[in-house]
Design a protein around this nucleic acid. Structure first.
Lengths: 164, 164
DNA sequence: GATGAAACCGTTGACGC
DNA sequence: GCGTCAACGGTTTCATC
């Protein structure tokens, strides 16, 4: 993986803030030409530094009013069993995030649900029907902040001039 | 909040998958005209069903090689103290997500770090210097999946014809 | 092989229906 | 509400260094 330049970081920071940021603004901020900015972005996409460009939707607007954090403990921590559970969890569209972790629990899941019944059905499918799940602990999320994943990027003194 | 139509959900699903999806493709899929699709998207943005359009960056590419899940317990659960901690946590760019939860812990945080020292410095600033933090439990994330937050959207039989 | 100019395609906003 | 059109921004190609 090749190193990223200061202007690459500026490009990433601006695009993370707004995927539709005008190339001209980025060019001005970095001191590069529009064509160069475009080539850098293409390169960042090709290198998969930029993984995707997505639209963040308010879950409540489409009926998902509840969020849960579920800590899952497995009976046996065999690699194939762990992988099998992760695949099942990931495959479920209501499982927003899936972390395989050290400590008391083996997995932490962030789960969206329309209501309590919806969540209960999901736990049955995901946990009760899996003999390898020892137990799971559910926390209701009362407030979530910073739902979308933003990577901290250093704000470097750009070479751009005052015309920005 | 007004109800969303089937074509609105299709628009959201396609934009969530790719923020740069061509309006023509969405028009074809939904059976709407390009102009109508554009007006719907504008309306969804205005209603804040669409919260933002962002670029997902691979954290490892910019030096953030470690992810942690931290469960935080507070000494006193007074609303002003809870809010104060949430604001401090959110303000830190390495805190990717912040959930105020029910159960054994009061907060669950997803934190990015460059290395262990970086994480330790962060815990000092965030937890040890706050008299209202009773304790915190750290889990190292060995593998994260589904890092970006995708809301499940029903795939409805569209009115679009076979020319898509 | 990096750069800038230019042609081409998609998006946006204004207008008229 | 709907499509049309002109202006703008993004993308690709090509010539040049």
């Amino acid at each position: 993986m090749s190193e990223l330049s200061a202007s690459d970081l500026t490009i990433l920071r601006m695009l993370q803030d707004n995927a539709r940021e005008k190339l001209e603004n980025i060019a001005c901020e970095t001191g590069l030409s529009v064509a160069t900015v475009q080539r850098r972005i293409r390169s960042l996409r090709d290198k998969e530094v930029i993984q995707r460009e997505t639209t963040v939707i308010q879950p409540e607007a489409v009926g998902y009013t509840m969020t849960f954090l579920v800590l899952v403990e497995m009976e046996r921590e065999r690699i194939d069993q762990v992988d099998a559970f992760r695949r099942r969890a990931q495959a479920n569209p209501q499982v927003q995030q899936c972390y395989y972790i050290t400590g008391e629990a083996d997995f932490a899941l962030i789960i969206l649900s329309k209501d309590i019944e919806d969540f209960e059905r999901l736990t049955h499918r995901l946990f009760f029907e899996d003999a390898n799940i020892k137990r799971f602990r559910t926390s209701v999320v009362m407030k979530r902040s910073k739902f979308s994943s933003e990577v901290p990027l250093a704000i470097l003194a750009g070479a751009g001039d005052a015309s920005c």
